[in-house]
Write a protein that binds this DNA or RNA. Structure first.
Lengths: 363, 363
DNA sequence: AGACTAAATTTGCGCGCGCAAATTTTTTAT
DNA sequence: ATAAAAAATTTGCGCGCGCAAATTTAGTCT
């Protein structure tokens, strides 16, 4: 019986191929260094930084890599390293295409820079978020990019984690935690949508969850109130029931409620985020309420985020768009600076990116 | 200078806390075994399988874990282990909520079973898929769950990978590759939608991409044709242009084209998948074409998958639903069996799960 | 060309744990 | 109670590589 020896299953067949290939399987860096005609630490130096060896040496090594298809054992590398090349990326809800999109861009940049990004999702669950942080600790990452759950995060646990592991927060800020924060300027989002809506029609009511998980929601509500007051309008915040991360469902149910009760003081609604708006629009459709700025429409709906699906809602959604690239790049840049600074910044910085208004059919 | 010594930054403060905590930081398993009053290999045995030590021993260890907050170094564990507890999960496109949802369920099951799932997304890119497989090789996973890109996969690369690493394919089958396949029964999907549509109205045309990436698309087309013929109807397959994974956009553009050209022979359309349907419906809305089975509707649209957003389309989408739980559970079960079988099955099995018809407003 | 500096390379040790074989302890059967 | 079997525990070695200090080689300036 050869339990677990799956790597050996085809050894005989392979051996017969070696005669053609004319070189044997390299087991470790020692053997690889030998066939390269170098000492192991020189090869090791190359793998830590290819530019740290002489050009001729580098070429010899790279030729040998091609020939023998060698790569160092990732576990042995990390076990004894002072600082690993691992980078943890944690998002609150990966089934939300917004986070999937950001994560994708971040991963790409990390790989290009020679790091090992590892992606985790808390899926809206505090316990899972804590468990992920515990696991990450064991991976001894060079640094971590964390988009926390927000209100439902275990603040103490995250603070404790960030004391031990260099962390950049993104998307959701938690005051004072982590070495830096990179996110979006919620005031910029809401001011653009509110100003557009007021100058093109009635001032909007603001539609949101009663107890939003994401702290951006609170900032958006406050921005809405401030901007409305500055423009001389009466703010009207509509809070709908619902917990968790099923925003579309919550938006839909909330919309049914307020539309059937006919409590809307204006014909214009600004949703806190696009996922609520997606649900809102589906309720409008079912109730036969025509949404948009065309004639025959009785309601305008706008939102914030420019969710990947907001192009395909009915009608398509007018929204304030995240600068996805800037947030992703900014997060990664900050992270790399943090790593180069030895894991600490002298002071915590906050970087916010402005929104770009995207006019579509819904408002 | 203390480059990279971030773990030490608060050492003095911590030391002063030790007097309260009354125990010092455990550095390795040796020290941990000492404070537990046991030898290291006994402790090691516990971590490999808590049930493999005496109950009293187990209790002593678990008390000590609580007290000293010790966990073994993950890199040292894996470096010398014959078989790791790592499990690779690879999906073709994580920004598609369908895969995010499946991945989430799979990850959960793996963690519960004591494994270390690691999630990767190919993001529709063949090179990235190959790179991920290369990385996975280095992680020496106990097994890998792979949902390949499909048509755009590098078949030879995947075959080579599966020769070395025990792999279960899911979602997208590649004939003969991997130790097993777990997926959905495309015939079941299409037969249910086609039969429903034909008995409740006109027989459907089939709407799809000209060169779909996913092999399920081909099975669905063939199933559509077979079922239509069996029912005595003329099949009508509409192929629209477009490459890549932006299915909504492709569906939308394709719908504009065929709707404006008025080439549809029936008033009923079956989309190959929900993401195409989402785009299709958005085009219908913009063109003022009312979709559904109510009076005043000129078109019915149905689809396959029960995408998380299909509840929120306008109108909501009638579709054949994946049995998400079964596919996720079935994949994981098969994977565990594979691991217990030493990484090889005597013969390759294919497990297919039937669809469940979900009637909504669109057809 | 010689001396000095900087870069490249080598020697040797240790990381934290898995694993097999040897030993001890506990359980089971008589 | 005693022997045999089974389970639990211990001893000792090796995994593949990082890293610091020592050594050699290459580059620079006068």
């Amino acid at each position: 019986m050869k339990t677990g020896k799956y790597l050996e299953f085809s050894a005989p067949r392979r051996r017969s191929q070696w005669s053609k290939m004319a070189h044997k399987k390299i087991k470790n860096m020692e053997e690889f260094a030998a066939v390269s005609g170098l000492s192991r630490p020189t090869v090791s130096k190359y793998f830590n930084d290819p530019d740290s060896v002489r050009a001729t040496t580098r070429e010899r090594i790279e030729t040998a890599i091609e020939k023998y298809n060698y790569s160092p054992n990732i576990f042995a590398i990390n076990q004894n390293r002072k600082l690993t090349k691992n980078i943890g990326i944690v998002v609150p809800y990966l089934a939300d295409p917004f986070y999937a999109e950001i994560a994708r861009k971040i991963e790409k940049r990390c790989v290009e820079a020679g790091f090992w990004p590892m992606l985790f999702s808390s899926y809206g669950d505090q316990q899972l978020e804590n468990d992920i942080l515990d696991s990450l600790r064991g991976l001894r990452p060079a640094a971590v990019l964390l988009a926390p759950l927000g209100r439902t995060s275990d603040r103490a646990a995250i603070e404790k984690f960030t004391r031990d592991v260099p962390t950049v927060l993104f998307d959701s800020n938690i005051e004072g935690i982590g070495q830096a924060f990179v996110g979006s300027d919620n005031f910029s989002f809401v001011s653009q949508t509110v100003e557009y809506l007021t100058r093109s029609g009635e001032p909007p009511s603001f539609f949101e969850m009663r107890t939003p998980a994401n702290p951006n929601a609170n900032k958006r509500r406050l921005a809405y109130i401030a901007i409305m007051e500055r423009l001389g309008f009466e703010p009207n915040v509509i809070k709908v029931e619902g917990e968790g991360w099923a925003f579309e469902e919550i938006g839909r149910n909330g919309a049914f409620k307020i539309l059937q009760e006919r409590t809307l003081p204006t014909d214009t609604v600004l949703c806190s985020n696009d996922r609520l708006a997606i649900g809102f629009l589906s309720a409008c459709y079912e109730l036969g309420i025509r949404v948009g700025r065309d004639e025959g429409c009785s309601l305008r709906v706008a939102s914030n985020d420019d969710h990947p699906y907001s192009k395909f809602t009915c009608p398509s959604l007018t929204t304030a768009a995240h600068d996805y690239d800037s947030v992703a790049n900014g997060s990664v840049e900050t992270l790399f600076e943090l790593i180069e600074s030895g894991g600490r910044f002298s002071k915590r910085t906050e970087t916010l990116y402005a929104a770009r208004l995207v006019l579509r059919a819904s408002a």
